[in-house]
Design a protein around this nucleic acid. Structure first.
Length: 427
RNA sequence: GCGGUAUUGGUGAAGUGGUUAACACGGCUGACUGUGACUCAGUUAUGCAUCGGUUCGAAUCCGAUAUACCGCC
């Protein structure tokens, strides 16, 4: 395996990403509209070349430039504001995307976009392969055997084995920045290393120092590409540091001094630690820059995230869990398996197209279990739309509550309803 | 009427004397948090057509009965 230096520095397509958007005075910026009294949280607006994002906001995950089983039209119908894609997954198509005018145009989304760096895959294909990013089962999590890993970390970057193409590959900060600049999302992420819950303090120190060096390299490389392009694309630095306060605060201080446009809050969290960790980070970060909490969307996590100062979120759970038969509702989640003969509308209190059109629990359960591929796919679409709308609506309500000055009450009521019914679900 | 073959869970079935009846599908339950995987994990027959016998021990051997299919008169 050998780092492919010829590709780096070679490309950057000068005039293909929709320049008009960038030159039309639509630079990236962030404004805070209102703060939650006595807390770190706030409501605001992120301005991007492809439009504004009203925060707090959920970004739907379209790893490969599309949300599974949901069309762009349907995403717009449920008020999705932004889409997150992944530089790792799109790495072999970045030039094609650049030629088509960048991610927003290429995907036909035409609205704000963000790309992840591929850092998550350092863990998910490396030490954490085959495991989940659990928030509750720390003691059961064991790192994968070295031989089973598909990703290996070095100072330069990460060597991957692609199990589908059966090919070795390499991505470091420079490669990630090059790929992301070609893809041309409105917001890019620095290349980072996420550790798993099983990693030791000592390993976290090592990984964090490396992530900080990668942050510096990401920033420099990204700036070079922006200079070549003649306009600025936003870059977020990513904070790691596991569950240790000294690591979280020190890395936040260091990255705060660097010229990032915003910050990604990363890591694998134990649920009970989440709020504290975010507080350590956000207390050290500059208030005027937006923060993206990576990869979380459970309502309680989101509400804690908002309270502690996170502005945007993303997560695969709403769509993945929909496909697995879990339907979100404000009064606890439904396990579709239980509703074989139900003629009740999926969620009578929901304003999503699926519920508005009167799809019943029984029908959806039947389609979920159907052996007919088309019916199953239709189920995936209907349920994904519903779950996404649920999270997006939660964001809209939370934003409104912040603006109305009653966020704490809203949060308390929401968690009470949600927790109460979850209890009922489990008897 | 005579002879042969078969009968295992919701389904398809493995198992021919020796602890808790393989496996698959389905069902149920759980999981899923910067999507490798419409996935993963657990569970699901106190019983092998029925009754009786042989044996330390039977889904497995023997007999009778029931049912199904195949031959022959």
């Amino acid at each position: 395996m050998k780092k492919n230096h010829d590709i780096i520095n070679q490309i950057v397509i000068r005039d293909v990403i929709d320049l008009e958007q960038y030159q039309n005075n639509n630079q990236f910026s962030f404004e805070i509209t209102k703060k939650i009294p006595g807390k770190l949280g706030r409501a605001g607006i992120i301005h991007t070349p492809h439009g504004d994002i009203l925060t707090p906001a959920f970004m739907t995950v379209g790893t490969n430039g599309e949300v599974r089983f949901v069309s762009m039209e349907e995403l717009k119908n449920i008020n999705a504001q932004a889409m997150l894609s992944n530089g790792y997954h799109l790495r072999n198509r970045s030039k094609e995307i650049a030629k088509a005018g960048g991610l927003a145009k290429w995907s036909h989304w035409n609205r704000p976009t963000l790309t992840d760096s591929g850092g998550f895959q350092v863990m998910s294909l490396g030490s954490g392969i085959g495991k989940v990013v659990s928030m509750e089962r720390e003691k059961e999590v064991v790192n994968a055997e070295e031989k089973d890993r598909l990703a290996r970390v070095t100072e330069d970057g990460v060597y991957f084995y692609d199990p589908i193409l059966k090919k070795d590959d390499f991505i470091g900060p420079e490669e990630s920045m090059r790929i992301q600049c070609e893809i041309g999302a409105d917001i890019h992420m620095a290349f980072d290393e996420l550790t798993s819950l099983a990693d030791s303090y000592d390993y976290n120190v090592e990984a964090l120092e490396r992530t900080e060096r990668w942050a510096k390299r990401s920033l420099e490389e990204h700036q070079k590409h922006c200079d070549d392009l003649g306009y600025h694309q936003a870059l977020y630095g990513v904070l790691q540091g596991g569950r240790w306060e000294d690591l979280r605060r020190s890395t936040a201080k260091k990255l705060a001094k660097m010229d990032f446009d915003g910050y990604g809050l990363g890591g694998a969290f134990l649920k009970e630690d989440l709020g504290e960790i975010l507080r350590w980070c956000c207390e050290e970060l500059p208030e005027k820059k937006p923060r993206h909490l990576l990869g979380l969307s459970r309502p309680d996590d989101i509400l804690i995230g908002i309270t502690m100062g996170a502005d945007t979120f993303d997560c695969v759970a709403p769509t993945r869990e929909a496909r697995h038969g879990r339907i979100y509702t404000k009064f606890g989640n439904l396990r579709l398996a239980k509703y074989k003969d139900s003629t009740e509308v999926l969620d009578p209190s929901c304003d999503c197209p699926t519920c508005k059109n009167g799809w019943t629990r029984g029908e959806l359960r039947r389609m979920w279990k159907s052996e007919n591929l088309e019916e199953r796919q239709q189920y995936f679409t209907l349920s994904s739309i519903h779950n996404l709308r649920f999270i997006i609506r939660l964001m809209e309500e939370a934003r409104k509550a912040i603006l109305d000055g009653n966020f704490e009450e809203y949060k308390e009521q929401f968690l009470k309803d949600y927790y109460h019914t979850s209890q009922q679900e489990n008897h």
